[in-house]
Design a protein around this nucleic acid. Structure first.
Length: 271
DNA sequence: ATGCCGACAATCTGTCGA
């Protein structure tokens, strides 16, 4: 049964927002549907859906009471947000990126008085110097956008696959090379520039020292050896950070058959 | 350096990206 229209106007005690790089939403359709049915997030932010909008398995999710807003792309990238209550799409591309940028890596919505940006930040290891420059350009535009929202006194969350390991505590020894684009000093500097605007990184705010990962490569038995990386993050504007009540890294998803290489990360906000 | 995965165009594999 669809939710009663009045339900959208009611404030629930908690808002749960989950980010998940699914590495093909068509392959992961059942895992995503099971997650929605079990966890009932208010919003599920998906990255790497790897399909165009018309190929997106929206019906499987609408059967569970979730509508979809989608910025798709053939074969690569692509982001979407599944939502129970109505939302309004504010951006389908990261502000500042040129029209020539063909990658589908950003979608943003208004969810009540909260702005929610779902991002799939470039990995930066492919396509040589040009590919890494693209990553840094993307990060600089994200910083500018966050600054503009702070200047406008907005409440927001920027969540997704950042493809950034913020510190050496955020990867297992040997899991990544020192020159990898996920850990390079310029990458971390660009991430810190975002944080230093005054944003709160949700996982470390509540679990400052735990060994926590969100990604385990398919290769070389990375999961079995717990050779993981923490690269999926949720950054909160100051007033939203005050509402942060819990974060969950849904590690069990990585045990399933045909899993994504990333697991979902949930943040809960008390109203 | 490593034992992978998914999409795609084109077969019974190769390439690209991550």
């Amino acid at each position: 049964m669809p939710p009663h229209p009045a339900a959208a106007a009611l404030r629930s005690p908690l808002t749960k927002i989950t980010t998940w790089n699914v590495n093909s939403v068509r392959i992961r359709e059942t895992h995503v549907a099971d997650f929605l049915a079990r966890e009932q997030p208010d919003l599920l932010l998906l990255q790497e859906i790897k399909c165009e909008e018309h190929q997106f398995p929206a019906l499987a999710f609408s059967n569970l009471g979730y509508s979809s807003v989608i910025v798709g792309q053939k074969s690569y990238n692509g982001v979407a947000i599944l939502h129970k209550a109505p939302v309004h799409v504010t951006h389908r591309k990261l502000p500042g990126m040129t029209e020539a940028d063909s990658h589908s890596r950003y979608i943003e919505i208004n969810f009540g008085d909260l702005i929610v940006g779902n991002l799939y930040l470039p990995n930066g290891n492919s396509n040589g110097d040009e590919g890494y420059a693209y990553k840094l350009e993307w990060m600089e535009n994200l910083r500018k956008h966050a600054q503009a929202m702070l200047d406008a006194d907005k409440n927001f969350i920027l969540a997704g696959d950042y493809n950034v390991c913020p510190t050496d505590a955020d990867f297992a020894p040997g899991a990544i090379s020192k020159t990898d684009a996920l850990v390079r000093p310029q990458t971390r500097a660009a991430f810190n520039a975002l944080i230093w605007l005054g944003l709160t990184e949700a996982v470390r705010a509540l679990h400052p020292a735990e060994k926590l990962y969100t990604f385990w490569d398919y290769q070389a038995g990375a999961w079995d050896r717990n050779s993981g990386l923490r690269i999926d993050h949720a950054l909160l504007s100051p007033r939203v950070a005050e509402q942060l009540s819990a974060v969950t890294i849904h590690k069990a998803e990585r045990e399933k058959t045909q899993p994504s290489d990333h697991v979902p990360v949930s943040v809960e906000l008390a109203n």
